[in-house]
């Protein structure tokens, strides 16, 4: 039993090793990114290019835009890649974010069962399509998680003039992928961004029913957390924000396709000439 304290210390040292090893290695910045940019595979395509150029690793926390914005408010991340312009405005106003740059754009799609019992595919615009779902009481899944997609869905419902209520309207309270998994099991309608839809493997009987309304435009921006608000944020996040709007990054965004379809269209205006 005399050995026990020595053994204990040894085990404690082994146990604490990961605590010590954490900040060694390459310099990095922490990015909170909407799940769509991660789940679509875009970031996996872009980040190696940036890391090779800058020597700076980007650690991605994939969360809904609502949660990403909360992480920024608390100073837990250095930068955001999100898609909720109204919430981004608020961050800039509050001084939590010091800079915003538009990076790319795609669009939201109304998807639902192939047979489309509500007839949403024959609607004249996006609110009308939602109205048809509501009229027919077709099962509709809402993210219900304050994500950028959820916020846009609520805005579209607002444009219909009727509040979605009833047993046909259900909140999953989950990410886009989990909501799509549920929709494909229940043959339900839901709103999804094009990138996640194209990347998603478990579509079941679901199909795109309505697309193309200007109100379904989905704008992604990069924001830097302000060093005035949170002095410890890593200043090199600026390099990543600069690079995302560079010609190299914008071309790489344009080049990322699935089944021949572009997932995100570059939208930096204008793309900056030189890369950092």
């Amino acid at each position: 039993m005399i050995r026990a304290p020595g053994l204990g210390l040894l085990l404690a040292a082994i146990a604490l090793a990961p605590l010590q090893a954490l900040s060694q290695g390459r310099p990095y910045v922490v990015l909170a990114a909407g799940t769509t940019t991660r789940d679509s595979g875009l970031l996996a395509q872009l980040l190696p290019l940036f890391e090779a150029r800058s020597g700076l690793a980007v650690r991605v926390i994939g969360v809904g835009t609502g949660r990403a914005i909360e992480l920024a408010r608390r100073g837990d991340v250095d930068a955001l890649l999100v898609h909720d312009p109204a919430a981004e405005d608020a961050l800039l106003r509050e001084g939590v974010a010091s800079l915003r740059r538009t990076v790319m754009v795609n669009d939201f799609l109304l998807i639902g069962p192939q047979e489309d019992p509500a007839g949403a595919r024959h609607a004249s615009d996006a609110p009308a399509a939602l109205n048809r779902v509501a009229q027919a009481q077709g099962l509709f899944l809402s993210r219900g998680d304050d994500s950028g997609t959820h916020k846009r869905e609520l805005a579209l419902w607002k444009a219909t003039g009727t509040a979605p209520e009833g047993s046909w309207y259900r909140e999953t309270g989950s990410g886009m992928g989990a909501t799509l998994n549920t929709a494909s099991q229940l043959d339900a309608y839901t709103l999804v961004d094009r990138a996640t839809w194209l990347f998603f493997r478990n579509r079941g009987q679901l199909a795109i029913l309505y697309e193309g309304d200007a109100r379904m435009r989905n704008l992604y921006s990069v924001l830097l957390v302000s060093r005035a608000a949170h002095p410890h944020v890593r200043p090199r996040a600026q390099e990543f924000a600069d690079w995302l709007v560079s010609k190299e990054a914008q071309a790489a965004i344009r080049a990322y396709t699935i089944d021949g379809q572009v997932l995100f269209h570059p939208a930096a205006n204008p793309p900056s000439e030189e890369s950092p």
């Binding site: 998994n181 493997r201 478990n202």
Partner: peptide
């Protein structure tokens, strides 16, 4: 959890 959310069951 990640692969589930990507629908790659």
């Amino acid at each position: 959890a990640l692969e589930t959310s990507r629908g790659d069951l």
